[in-house]
Design a protein around this nucleic acid. Sequence first.
DNA 1: AACGAGAGACAA
DNA 2: TGTCTCTCGTTC
Length: 770
Amino acid sequence: MPSAIDVLLPLPIGQLTYLPPVAGRQGTDADAATPVPGQRVVVPWQAGARIGVVADVRTVDAGRGLELRHALHTLEARPWLTRAGLTTIAHLARHSGVPAGLVLATLNPPGLHQELDHQVRLHPGAEGYLSAMGAALHDAAASAGAGDGWMPAALVPAKGLEELRKQGLVDERALPVVATRRVLVPVREPDADLEGARRLAQRIALERLWEIAEAPSAAALAEEAEVGASAVRALVTKGYAEYVEVAAEEPSSPAPWPATAALPSVGVVAPVGDGAVVGGTRAGRLAALVPRLREDLRAGASVVVLAPETALATEAAAQLATALPTSLLTGEASDGARLRLWRDLPSAAPHVLVGTYLALLAPLEPLGRLVVLEAASPAYKLQAGSRTLVSKAARVTAKAAGAPLTLLDLAAGPDLLARMPRGSRVDLPLPALRLHVADLNGGGNWPVHPDLTRTLRQVVDRDRQALILAPRRGYSGSLGCSECGWQAPCPNCDLTLRYHRDEGVLRCHQCGHEERPPLRCPACGGADVGPVRGAGTQWVADQLRKSLGGFPVYRYDKDHRDDVGALVAGAPGVVVGTQALLSLPPLPELSLIGVTHFDTHLAAADFRAEEEAARTLLRLAELGGGRRPLMVVQTHSPEHELLAALAAPDPAAALEVLIGKQLARRKRFGYPPFASLAKLQFSARDRGSALAAAQAAADGLLTGGARADEVLGPASAPVKRLKGRYLYQLLLRAADDVRLEELLARTPQRYPGAKLATDVDPSDVGAFLD
DNA sequence: AACGAGAGACAA
DNA sequence: TGTCTCTCGTTC
């Protein structure tokens, strides 16, 4: 029984089976021992080669062994992913109904997309068996000139390589291209030819070069030795020095920001086993974690701390670095830096790795703890690829690694309450909000209510800072006609175009389509075409610039990020932005927070909308640092129970009552955490195919054993058409994850003319359904 | 994701 | 009849 390896490639396919590498076929004495799970291997793939990860090592029967191809070689002796990492990938693939390779590609560990230098040669002794293609290759190799027969694989036609591989007549090697840099190195000692005053400069330069061993360039050496550039050039011409290519060291990953503020003392410590720290402030929760992490490190284990986004990871790393050895892994680091960090992790002394989802598979063993910051943050839901819910995936990884899981969050939300065992929760006091509700009913002064204007005037008078949250970027939600009600539609999507007045364009925020605003209404010819619907950041900022005199007004959203460094340093000003504001560091002089349209947050198309809205306000309040800024919330529903709870003297207690009610509703309607949901989204260029696919899937599931209440739909998606494709969806609602996996496993993946995208734990389910 | 095979669309 | 585009299925 030949042994074989199952390999995961970062592609949307399942694992593929290869035979282990054969010794001697790479023209090197590379280690030919059977690879171990987690190790990186290079495998033949289509006409080339790719880097993958060994998922499993097993035996196959002899017949199968004859059909399989050999992997080319392993890349390093140590595993690139841990057992816990491999288990996580396999679990997520099963649980999400997507191929394991897609999970790997989405979690994107470094080192799987390195460029390969793929070379081939005829296997020594194969000449006697050559077909026409082999003979052509033989001739090509001879004319390519390299004496050892190796030639770039790109010179061989794809068909030919395939044929030669089948016949076993070709040797291959494909190693990552090593980044090099050109340096000037000394070759000969100064000799009699460099004697004399005229050669003094050359002699000085050469002696200096011997001292420093290498110089990055001729100009750099000239400067270093304080001689002219021509003297250095002469050394090269005369053969005293020459340029050589040397391997360039990968850049090291960026150090976390230098932390200025020490963590506050909060007098509590995070639980030893699975548990949570809620309430207080971001820094306060981290402070409660530090003593626990210190113990984990002392016991010889490392810790992974996950953050929902880069800015929070960076901030947390900077704060933790004041107390513990800390490294940082986010998408901001270059490929080279991530590669070096990953390579160094297995041999690093116990430390804390802070990162975004990119850190989930980090090869740290033993893993002493997995920490999830802002555990209920919607940013943990990845929107592309395997659409993994990272906070949930962290549970899988922690379990697989045998490490306790610690959740940190600003309040105990429904999921945390339902999952964390009683007694494992540490509560920090939630500071009371200074909340003022500005009633938008009765109109007037849109989009900035007089109450907000008045308090902003005080900010200006006292040279303080204010922060205004608007529900969208751009100028307005739409451009429309006041006479007939027409609104500019997107030609590709079932949406209106957003109006960006400063660029003079209408733009679709989904597909990117742009057009010029019409001068007259295309429907009725009316001349009164202007901004309609919700005010965006541009509108609010324009309004404030008019009403606040010369007071600095900044904008901060995905389109337009003003440099707010001055505000972070404490200078007076107002910043208007979207949710992007939440990734700012605390502003030291923040005395006012405005929310222009709270109703938009409450009306989000998801059953978690209220919880999210509360979370947004609490996170905004945290941007005040130690201060308690006044919060002015503009809304059409000033009596909303959420606002009352947040304004209560003990907001934590009041919120817990609301969350308790939420949980009861979720239980009654069969929503998470009392059920597991998946959204099956069908898209097609024509409406009929999309609907037919959704209907076929629903029928298939129902006849295949799904209960009627487990399959909801088909229904048109909330946005009926996106990027030129019609969307229909099914919602699967199963009793638990295991049942959901069963249903997903029975769902056909192919439909004529339509594509299926599976989204487990979707984040936009809509309001409660019956 | 990336590739090749096959099906239709259009010009000559 | 060629060639260009699009859809579909496979990748070990």
